[in-house]
Nucleic acid binder design. Structure first.
Lengths: 148, 148
DNA sequence: TATTGTTATACTCTATAACTATA
DNA sequence: TATAGTTATAGAGTATAACAATA
């Protein structure tokens, strides 16, 4: 099969929002800590980048600084993120997960993944292989587009 | 390659939000009419289901009635959707695209698709084939999950 | 002067609860 | 009484513009 560029783009445009809705509704369900997708992603980034600044997180997520500031503010209020002024450069923030943030992230990740796993488990190994390959290709596409 | 259920679910959980962000930022850009993704989807649904009721649209998109009511309200205000009381059952609405809504949808669709096409055009035919197959599989997954 | 964040303001998206109008 | 929508209220996500603090 040799799908056209058009067909491929159309498929992505239809299916990605569908999947996003699925993931979002799961994140909001009572099976997991109540985290929005952006909150979840911010926590995951901070797990991998201890001590990142606000700009670091905003840059990674492609959000404006005010949006990021507000998002982090909510996580700080909930005790999931520690926010300190940097010693080197007092304009910058030093952000890190708290112990509570770390465990909340872990529970949310397990919950969200386990839900997707239920769905994915009904597929054949060959179908899963196709999905993984497609995700890797799309990850490259998104990374390239974000850098432009 | 035989990816595990875990790996597959994790990939989806990471990549879908990335792609969603890409699509959303494009929708909001000045290259297309300024439509949010839900607004775009509602217009697309009404194009295929002329005369649908509010509940029809809400059901299809998985939104609550108040959310849908407000979303449609915005589209009516912008002159993209016509909202009338049904003659048969005066509790129901009869929704339809206006001429302006129809053309706005078309322009937005072309804009969003053309942007994705630029990205997708850099891929090989084999890569596009993988993506199309994966989207078809995920569409089934989403449809099944939505019906539960 | 340039950079990092925050505040102010204003949308949209989303939900639940309470309400109105119709059947 | 049950159904279709709307209004009220609330919180998150997002942006731009204006500001404060620091370098």
């Amino acid at each position: 099969m040799q799908p056209s560029v058009d067909e491929c783009a159309n498929e992505v445009l239809e299916v990605v929002p569908l999947m996003m809705r699925l993931i979002r509704s799961q994140m909001r369900s009572h099976r997991t800590p109540d985290l929005s997708v952006p909150q979840f992603r911010a926590l995951a980034f901070l797990e991998r980048h201890e001590g990142a600044s606000l700009s670091d997180v905003a840059g990674h997520m492609g959000l404006s600084l005010p949006s990021m500031s507000k998002l982090i503010d909510g996580l700080v209020t909930r005790g999931l993120v520690a926010r300190q002024t940097s010693f080197n450069d007092r304009r910058c923030l030093t952000l890190a997960l708290t112990a509570s943030g770390r465990s909340t992230l872990e529970v949310a990740r397990q919950g969200a993944v386990s839900y997707l796993k239920e769905q994915v488990a009904t597929l054949s190994p060959a179908e899963r292989a196709i999905i993984v390959q497609a995700m890797q290709i799309l990850r490259r596409v998104a990374a390239k587009a974000a850098g432009e």
